[in-house]
C-alpha cells in the first residue's frame, strides 16, 4: 500500500502537464506489465528494501542515537578501532540497552576477553546474555551461523578484537553477506567488533571509534572517545563526530 502511494506521488510529480486522471491508470498498467514480466525471477520488484531496514534500536549512547537514530534491525553494524578506543564500552552499552528491554542477546567472545563484572556494573542483565567463549576464528564463525539460524536473539555480538588481524582479514566477504542475508528479514542486530574495518559493504552501519583524552585520579577515572559514522545505509556517511565520556567508578 505504502509503495503504491509512493509510486502514485512519483507519477504525479513527473506528469504535471498531463491530466491527473490519465497518469494514474497508465502508471499502474506499466507497473503491472513490469511485475508480470519480472514475476518469474523477482517476487516483489517494487518492494522498497531500504524501507524494511529503517527500524532502528537505540545504542544507549544518547548523542549517537540522536545523530543516527540507532542500530538498524536486520542488518550488520560494525564497530572498529584500536585498543582503548571505546568499542567494548559501546558494545556493552548496546547489550545493556537491549537486556533492559528484556530482549535476549548473545555475545560471541572471540578471545574470552569479556568481563562480566564491568558489564553488570554498566547495566547488562547477565541472565539475558548468552556468552560463548571461543578461542579460534572458525569457532566464532560456526557459532555465529548457529545463533543466527536459531533466531530469536535481539542482538548478536561478534567480538573479533583480539584475534590475529591476518586471520580476521581472511574472512571471505561472502560470509558477511551470508550473515546479512540470514538476519535480513528478522529483528536481530548483528554487531561485529574488530580492530579494523572488515565487514565492508555487507554492513548497514560502520562506526569508527577513537580514543581522546583520559582523565586520571587515584586510578584511571575515565576517558573520552569519538565515534565517526563511516558508512550508513540509512543516510549518507557523516563525517561528524560524537564525543562520549566514560567513567570507571564501577570497574573493579
Amino acid at each position: 500500500m505504502q509503495s503504491a502511494i509512493l509510486h502514485q506521488g512519483f507519477a504525479l510529480s513527473r506528469s504535471r502537464s498531463a491530466p491527473q486522471g490519465f497518469a494514474l491508470p497508465r502508471s499502474r498498467s506499466t507497473r503491472a506489465r513490469l511485475e508480470s514480466a519480472l514475476g518469474e525471477r523477482i517476487s516483489a520488484p517494487f518492494t522498497d528494501i531500504e524501507r524494511r531496514t529503517l527500524e532502528t534500536v537505540p545504542t544507549g549512547i544518547a548523542p549517537l542515537d540522536a545523530l543516527m537514530g540507532g542500530l538498524p534491525r536486520g542488518g550488520i553494524t560494525e564497530l572498529f578501532g584500536p585498543p582503548s578506543s571505546g568499542c567494548t564500552s559501546a558494545m556493552i552499552s548496546i547489550l545493556a540497552e537491549a537486556t533492559a528491554r528484556d530482549e535476549v542477546c548473545a555475545l560471541i567472545d572471540g578471545n574470552d576477553a569479556f568481563d562480566p563484572k564491568s558489564a553488570a556494573a554498566a547495566g547488562v542483565e547477565l541472565n539475558r546474555l548468552l556468552w560463548i567463549r571461543c578461542r579460534k576464528l572458525e569457532h566464532v564463525l560456526k557459532t555465529t551461523d548457529l545463533l543466527l539460524q536459531g533466531g530469536g536473539f535481539g542482538r548478536v555480538v561478534m567480538d573479533l578484537t583480539d584475534l590475529p588481524a591476518s586471520n580476521v582479514r581472511s574472512i571471505p566477504l561472502v560470509s558477511w553477506f551470508r550473515f546479512q542475508r540470514t538476519i535480513e528479514k528478522t529483528p536481530t542486530v548483528l554487531v561485529v567488533m574488530s580492530s579494523e574495518n572488515i565487514v565492508k559493504s555487507a554492513a548497514a552501519l560502520v562506526l569508527r571509534m577513537e580514543k581522546q583524552d583520559a582523565q586520571w585520579s587515584t586510578l584511571l577515572n575515565g576517558f573520552n572517545f569519538n565515534i565517526e559514522i563511516v558508512r550508513s545505509r540509512k543516510s549518507r556517511p557523516l563525517k561528524s563526530y560524537v564525543r562520549v565520556h566514560l567513567h570507571s567508578e564501577c570497574v573493579q
Binding site: 569479556f114 554498566a122 562520549v244 567513567h247 567508578e249
Partner: peptide, 8 residues
Amino acid sequence: FKLLALRR
C-alpha cells in the same frame, strides 16, 4: 550507560 569496560 556510560561506564568504562575492561577487556581481560
